[in-house]
Amino acid sequence: MKTTLSILQYRDIIDSINVTYGINLKQHAMSSLRQHLLIVMEKSKYSNPTLVAKGIKEDKQFLEQIISCLYCEHISLFRDPAMWRILKPQVIDTLPKSVQLKIWIPEVSQASDYYSLVIILKKLGLLAKSKIVISDESRINLDKCKQGEIDSNIINTSESNIKRFDAGDDLYNYVSQSGRKFYIDKSLLKTTIISKGGVLDIDLPFKPNLVLFRNKMIYFNPVKEQKVINKLHKEIVGGGILITGVKEDISTFEIRGKFKIHNKDEQIYKRSY
């Protein structure tokens, strides 16, 4: 039978998560979060709204499961190869030469952008000289990142994408298989700082000059999106770069005096000084 969730039932679940765990999901985009809950319900033993309410109160693992895929993403490594191609000439090379790359990837989720980034930095000989912090609300996601785990469903597309990015390269130069699981070369991850917390709550160990925050704001409502833009402005150093998803046009929000468009096609923004 098809799982269903009315808007009222959806609101009850969100309220219940807030009351039970103090996690406020009211500022997530409703259609997406509702769809996400439906997927979680279909895959779990809590298959109807009454059972979900019970699960939230009694089963913290179930809540972890909900939080771990809040961004519902199914994103391959090197998604949007054009963006990755211009990362060096239009982003890294525009930062002052003497400045160390300090990168923040909030809501790292399934880590596709994180893994893509460390591969590129390795190829450019910049990985050892860079500082990277990844953060997420979900302990499950952060543990997977620590292990370098890659969702097996994205391997084939990732293989094709890396060739589109660099025809001479091969994903398996950086990825190995163990049983049914795939892992990125752990040596690429060893300098990364892992931090638990949502984008609005996190205290960073440094001020980043590059933030990768692609296809995450699509899951926020406009109120939270503006808050996140303000937070990113507060954290990124003057002249630093923010990269959002190619269909996340933050120029429709109040960014005057905060960010300027650096590359419109790839939605790359430069923080004002």
Partner: peptide
């Protein structure tokens, strides 16, 4: 609908995009 995104209509007559699984 843009490539590689799901196109969803939200209450309030706005579009929402998502990267849900296929």
């Amino acid at each position: 609908a843009p490539a590689n995104y799901h196109l969803i209509v939200e209450l309030g007559n706005t579009f929402a995009l998502s990267t849900f699984d296929n």
